[in-house]
Every structure is written in structure tokens, then in C-alpha cells.
Design a protein around this nucleic acid. Structure first.
Length: 437
RNA sequence: UCCCGGAUAGCUCAGUCGGUAGAGCAACCGGCUGUUAACCGGUUUGUCCUAGGUUCAAGUCCUAGUCCGGGAGCCA
């Protein structure tokens, strides 16, 4: 079928602008109900769903019979008139006058509009992407990515990409994926932070945004082995400065989703009143205050340790918006974090805990800018000094106070979507022992 | 790595005290002019995860293993 001036090609999301006019829509058969001399064909084109109605006698008989038998996900073009009709899902429908079948799909499309287990759906992720829930989650993800970039660019940041191949551990803590690098070994990055620090000394305000890799054998709904992280790094910023920056970022991302993703949130049946309370200021608790709260609740938490996932959940449950916990004991935190000059027991760091049990979405800190101190931290953590020579150079040539944080994109998106697993918020998730499709 | 749970039709699951395999949905055929995960009638569908053991008899009980899910730790 060729489109014509009489029936222009229109995306489903634009149909309401073409009421009472003939159009061509192109897409896939999402659902089909044949009812005698009527056939209701729900067409999916990526931008939305529209019900197309075929009436025997008002179109070619052979075509009418053919579309009644179309397997799900067959690709077709439909020409017909747009009608506004309250009985149609979405309010508009297309009265079919002509159909071209591009490909009649095999009859065994595995995903039905019924309940499936997540394991089965993930085996069929390449096809599951066509369903409503992935449609909603991944569009919200796209909106979040745009919001993040817009937010930082509007504040004068520039995007600096950090390398994926790295010569050694950035933090020396989590397990890395090792790859052959010619005759040498390299590792997939677990954080772009150290490179962002170098860039901050060159550009002032920067952010890296890209995939990161953790080879931890985590089997939980809050972990992926490959995930996307945005990491701003700001020269001359203090911990308080980046806490406000993080607060602003979360408000922006959530606010944009509420404004621009109403349909997606509806598909996900997200309780948007929970998102509408996400406004600055966020509660700010010191580690000391948070620890005392946990002890008062009788949780099995030992003062001086890092918070576990159940601890974070308990703290998060107390508030209707993200909580910022700052100044942890330096022993439980990374080597590059600066200690609090007011009280050297604490590291100048912050974790942001999302509400509703979504856990840590942001971790950040003020960085140690003194060369001698940083050297001794590397020694204390038994890290290979050689690998950090370039990093130490940043403290030799015009060192300044600076701070930054990292935000896990999928954790943030999962929270906004209200879904119970991170893997739904990335197109093709990579998890422990899962790398198909 | 550790703890808990699971594996039966294409999918979601039931299967009693150990007695020879079931439902809904999907697919296929037929009916219906306003359906909304339509409905009604009919048809088809099995390596009961694998290997061994107990027993007259194992989907069911025992042992080992494999794979999957969730949680802990670690972190975003």
C-alpha cells in the first residue's frame, strides 16, 4: 500500500488530530477480537495503541476474512477513517477500509496479555519489549536520561565520557570484570569518578554518564552487573553543595516524569501522589542521628558499621521523600573521601535513600584534596600506589576542594516507575549468570 | 559464598493417604454487528528437571546433582 494525500501516514499518538479524516497507520497486531461480522483489531505502533474496526460489507470480503485470522504481532498497514468514539480504548479508532499485511506472524508468539513469570518474560525480553509495561518503563527511563542531561547542562556542566576499559580498580572494593587487553589485563569500569575528578580540574563542572560494571555475585532485585550511572564532579564544591545538587537532580527527574509521562505512569498503575511529594528540602540526617534512630527502633544494628539494606529501608520508611544520610564513619567508606575537619571520625559523604524501600540511589562525597593525606589513605587501604600516580597528580598541580556523587539510573527509574525489579528498567538487563538475549 | 523457596502441557498453576496426568489461558475449527484480558460450542497438547534408590506400584517418599526465583553480604 502506498500512502497518499488522501490517507497520510500518521503515528497513533497523533491520531486525535486527524478526526474524521482518512489516514494510514502502520504497526503490529497487538490484540484481536473477531465478533461475527465485526472485527476489533488493536494496532500497536510504538507510540500507542489504537483500535481498528473492520465491518463485513464495508471492506473487501477476502481482506475481512484474512484479518480475522491474523496471528498476534503480524505487521500490517491499515487505511481508514479516524473516528472519535467513547467506546474505543483511547477515545479514537480507525474504521478499516483497506489492509496490507506486511508479514503474517508465526502463530506461536510467546507473550500473551496474561500473567507470565518474570523468568519466562526475561528469556523473551526481545519480544517482551513490545508489551505495555516495558513500553512505560523504558519511556520513563528515556525521559529520566533527558532530564539528567538537561539539568546538568542548564547548570553549566559539560558531559565528559570516562573510559570503559580501566587499568585497575577505581575504589579497590567491588569485584571487577577482567578482560584481555592485547597482552595485558584490563577491567571494565565500576565508576567514572576518578576520571571525572581529572575532568573537573579541567572544566570546572562535569558529569560522566555511561555504563558501569560490577562482578559482584548479587542476586537481588536491586542489583545488575551492568548498569548506568551519572556522576557529576564539581571543583570548589563542598559536601553541602553536592547534597543540594543531588536534591535538585532528583526533584527535576521526578517532576519531569510527572509532567511528561502521565500515560506511562498510568500504565504502571503508579501511585503518583507518592511522587508528587518529592520536593526540596529533603530530610538530612547525620550517620550518628540515623544510627540512634535505628537503635531506638530496636534493630540489630551495630554502631560504627555501615547500614545494611534492612537498615536503609527502616530509615527510608520514616519519610515521604528521599533521605540524605551524611558523615559516616570513615572506616566503612572509600579511601578518596575527605574526613570531616570538625570531627575526624567522620567521612564527608552522603547516601541518598529513596522512599518506598527502593534503597540507595545516590552515593557521594567531598574528595580528599591533600596529596600527603591521600597517599596515606591509599597505603592504608593497601591499594597499588603505581596505578594512582595520575590521580595523585591532580593533587600536585593546583589541587582544590571538590565533590561529586553517583546516581544509579535504573534504581532511580525503578523507584519512579514503582516496579519491583531493576531489570525492568533497562532494555536488556545483565545479571548474575544471565546474558541472554 | 551463605540462607530460604521452587521445577508438572506453549504460558500460569492444581495434583488428596504412594494407585497409572488435570484446569484456565494460548493454538486450531465453528458461531455471533460494539468487543474492552469478549463470550459460547468443539479439537489438539506431556522427557511430571536429571540420575540413582525404596516399593507390587513414585509427579508424590529418600539421596545426589542441575537450573531458576528471592534474600544476606557488597554496592548505585
Amino acid at each position: 500500500m502506498t500512502t497518499s494525500d488522501e490517507a497520510p501516514f500518521v503515528r497513533v499518538c497523533e491520531l486525535s488530530k486527524h478526526a474524521d479524516r482518512s489516514v494510514t497507520v502502520k504497526g503490529w497486531v497487538y490484540h484481536l477480537r473477531a465478533k461475527g461480522k465485526l472485527v476489533f483489531l488493536v494496532l500497536r505502533d510504538g507510540s500507542g495503541l489504537v483500535q481498528c474496526v473492520g465491518v463485513k460489507g464495508e471492506m473487501d470480503d477476502a481482506q475481512f476474512d484474512e484479518i480475522q485470522r491474523l496471528p498476534m504481532e503480524s505487521s500490517i498497514e491499515v487505511r481508514g477513517k479516524v473516528r472519535l468514539d467513547a467506546r474505543a480504548p483511547g477515545g479514537a479508532e480507525v474504521g478499516i477500509s483497506f489492509v496490507t499485511v506486511l508479514q503474517k506472524a508465526d502463530a506461536d508468539f510467546p507473550i500473551q496479555p496474561k500473567e507470565h513469570g518474570t523468568g519466562f518474560l526475561m528469556e523473551n525480553r526481545h519480544l517482551w519489549l513490545r508489551s505495555r509495561k516495558p513500553w512505560a518503563c523504558l519511556r520513563i527511563r528515556d525521559r529520566a536520561i533527558r532530564s539528567i542531561r538537561e539539568y546538568f547542562h542548564e547548570l553549566g556542566f559539560i558531559n565528559i565520557d570516562s573510559p570503559i576499559f580501566t587499568p585497575a580498580a577505581c575504589e579497590g572494593t567491588s569485584t571487577l570484570f577482567e578482560v584481555d587487553y592485547f597482552d595485558d589485563k584490563a577491567y571494565l569500569t565500576q565508576s567514572g569518578q576518578l576520571y571525572a575528578e581529572a575532568a573537573a580540574m579541567a572544566f570546572g563542572k562535569v558529569f560522566t554518564f555511561g555504563p558501569t560494571f560490577r562482578a559482584e555475585k548479587s542476586k537481588t532485585r536491586r542489583h545488575l552487573t551492568e548498569f548506568w550511572m551519572v556522576e557529576p564532579e564539581v571543583a570548589f564544591a563542598t559536601l553541602d553543595d553536592v547534597m543540594s545538587l543531588a536534591e535538585g537532580l532528583l526533584c527535576r527527574v521526578v517532576g519531569d516524569a510527572l509532567t511528561d509521562c502521565k500515560e506511562e505512569l498510568k500504565v504502571l498503575e503508579r501511585d503518583v501522589t507518592k511522587l508528587e511529594c518529592i520536593r526540596a528540602p529533603f530530610p538530612r540526617l547525620s550517620y550518628d542521628e540515623a544510627a540512634k534512630y535505628l537503635q531506638s527502633k530496636g534493630l540489630p544494628f551495630e554502631y560504627g558499621n555501615d547500614f545494611g539494606a534492612p537498615d536503609e529501608t527502616a530509615i527510608g520508611e520514616k519519610y515521604d521523600r528521599p533521605v540524605m544520610i551524611h558523615r559516616y564513619p570513615h572506616q566503612v567508606k572509600a579511601f578518596y573521601m575527605k574526613r570531616d575537619p570538625q570531627d575526624p571520625r567522620w567521612a564527608l559523604c552522603v547516601d541518598v535513600i529513596a522512599p518506598e524501600g527502593y534503597g540507595e540511589v545516590i552515593g557521594g562525597s567531598q574528595r580528599e584534596e591533600n596529596l600527603a593525606v591521600l597517599r596515606s589513605r591509599i597505603e592504608e587501604h593497601k591499594l597499588p600506589m603505581d596505578a594512582f600516580q595520575w590521580y595523585l597528580d591532580l593533587r600536585r598541580f593546583g589541587s582544590v576542594p571538590h565533590s561529586g556523587f553517583g546516581m544509579g539510573l535504573e534504581r532511580c527509574v525503578a523507584w519512579i516507575c514503582g516496579v519491583d525489579h531493576l531489570r525492568e528498567c533497562i532494555p536488556f538487563p545483565r545479571m548474575l549468570h544471565k546474558i541472554y538475549p
